[in-house]
Design a binder for these strands. Structure first.
Lengths: 336, 336
DNA sequence: ATGAAATGTGACACCGGTGTCATAATGAGG
DNA sequence: CCTCATTATGACACCGGTGTCACATTTCAT
């Protein structure tokens, strides 16, 4: 099968390349008759313009790259879903690129990515949105980027985050108001800024309600289900057993719930469990998890939309936004 | 900041574009001295080649597109993970494109995708891997593609599937051998060929063990958790209550488990539950789900690898492979 | 009818690389 | 020292579009 290019169309239709290009891009100043004629040839020859050539001429690829390194699959799915919504709205496409923050190869990896595929912009999700090294590199390379859920504030780039500290405060307060005071906490991955923020919200709630912070009640997780299972073991063995557990995300909370159930503890009668994120699993298990609904899709959608506007050369106005997190109470928390 | 192109490098280094290009691509016939010189200029000018220009010249984008329309998020995550592994191994990138099979806009949507971004190949996941309309279109457009978990056999294109019928047979047989005979079944999405195959395996197992098939025990799901919850209601209200439920995927099985637990039924003492896929949720809940481990990542990895070889012009040899599914027994199934 | 403005069209350079081929420089063998 | 093969290098066309600008044609007010 012979390739159909803009040249063949032009020859066949008896007009110049440029006129074909005009029809292709719906530019004005083409007579209706000519336009019709060219459009007919498009159909006849089954012509599809070459996006690469177009990209070269316009210096655009209409592709956004999404960087992630996140143990929580559902978080990534939600990120993708928000990013895709914004992309498709503007006729952009999304390229996904998981990679590792640690190991020293990050910059080389991203450099290779940019060499392999021309990307108009990059969405950085945690923990990349907090990587100063990466951000410096992108600035130097003049690559457009948007940060999702980043804690860095003194940066003039696009950033959409949610209020993790406040969310953690509220859910801890919810437990306290139910009557809990012996509340265990499971931390997230140390590379993620959300980890520190959620921890800090937990501590602030305790202190606000005059409950002494007890480091023995804190377990180190990393947002993965598996780490939650390990932390759960540690926590359920504490004497006296905490009457409530607040895990930094729903996966880890689900792991606590599973172990508690295995040990024939009744949730929430014997122990209350709270999570964070409002991941699907929070409502797929019984009892459903009390959690903080974090607007992951919406954050990403907004970030990508701003990014695309910026790429288009528009004046984006407000670059940095903070969305609210919301407490969702389900069956996993109750009075002790 | 001025753009650094191959021309600036050439001028600065005092050589021709072509020589720079040679160094860039590690081609032979460049004297060590010249190579050194050019490499030094790369560093000095912080040069990054333009992938689009390269793509235009070579007629390659080194991007694979992944099509999906699947209610199960974890399935998609696994597909992506397998596809990415193969892509990165060959220095390709992955662009994701969820879209709808139904609605009539599919072909236009894909046509637009191909117009927007030059893709070297497409991975079709269910239900697209069974869409004759789409496959015809891609053939006509001369687009390389690979099918994952497709039931179409009389096609000369790349296809990697797993044995769904056999998997469903085995898990049903497992229930029968435990002593169950009143086994309810929840179907998957009607657009997916796996749905028919799993149903067929269920029926074959019944018939092999001389158990009469009873259509009243069959509920219509669509692979989503939500549809599983609806089916669960219907099934748990059947009198006499089935002693076991086999759901066509783990999400729906999890929904059955949740409702059963809510109704204070003990699993597996009062009712056994089996799923399909070995999705993460199968081991994140208690009791863990007995299920069929489907090698989703591996299927996709192999499919993409074959696809990339084909794009590279290699003789791919065997185009169609079937991988085995494996029974995983956990706590959700037991004697009635 | 006439000149100015608006509209339609094409020639040509350009985007930033790669492929082909001719030619220059180097090295081995006699 | 010369010939011939080998290695190194560059000129130039080309990939398939878009941007600029010049020019031809039409429209419209005077």
């Amino acid at each position: 099968m012979k390739k159909v290019t803009i040249n063949s169309v032009a020859t066949y239709a008896g007009v110049s390349k440029k006129t074909v290009s005009r029809v292709l891009n719906n530019e004005p100043n083409v007579s209706p008759a000519t336009r019709e004629k060219v459009l007919k040839v498009f159909k006849e020859l089954d012509y599809t313009p070459n996006p690469i050539a177009r990209g070269l001429a316009r210096n655009r690829s209409f592709i956004i790259g999404c960087l992630y390194d996140n143990p929580s699959k559902s978080y990534i799915t939600r990120v993708q879903s928000g990013a895709l919504e914004a992309c498709h709205k503007h006729n952009y496409n999304l390229l996904i690129h998981p990679c590792e923050l640690r190991g020293g190869a990050l910059i080389a990896n991203i450099e290779n990515l940019l060499t392999t595929s021309r990307l108009d912009g990059l969405v950085l999700t945690p923990p990349f949105s907090d990587s100063v090294e990466l951000i410096e590199f992108l600035k130097r390379k003049n690559v457009n980027y948007a940060r999702v859920a980043s804690a860095i504030e003194d940066d003039e780039s696009i950033s959409v985050r949610s209020n993790d500290e406040q969310g953690a405060f509220e859910i801890t307060e919810h437990l306290i108001e139910l009557g809990h005071s012996n509340i265990a906490f499971i931390k997230g991955h140390p590379d993620h800024s959300a980890t520190e923020q959620r921890f800090s919200g937990y501590q602030r709630a305790l202190s606000t309600h005059n409950i002494a912070f007890n480091n023995a009640l804190v377990a180190e997780g990393n947002f993965s289900y598996h780490s939650g299972a390990d932390s759960a073991k540690a926590i359920l063995d504490i004497t006296p057993r905490p009457s409530a557990v607040f895990a930094s995300n729903d996966y880890m909370a689900a792991a606590v719930l599973k172990l508690a159930t295995q040990r024939h503890l009744k949730v929430p009668e014997d122990i209350s469990i709270a999570g964070f994120d409002n991941a699907p699993i929070a409502r797929h298990i019984w009892p459903g998890l009390t959690t903080i609904a974090q607007p992951v899709e919406e954050m990403t959608r907004q970030a990508v939309e701003l990014l695309i506007n910026q790429i288009g050369g528009a004046d984006v106005g407000v670059l940095q936004t903070t969305l609210e997190a919301k407490l969702i109470t389900r069956e996993s928390t109750a009075k002790p």
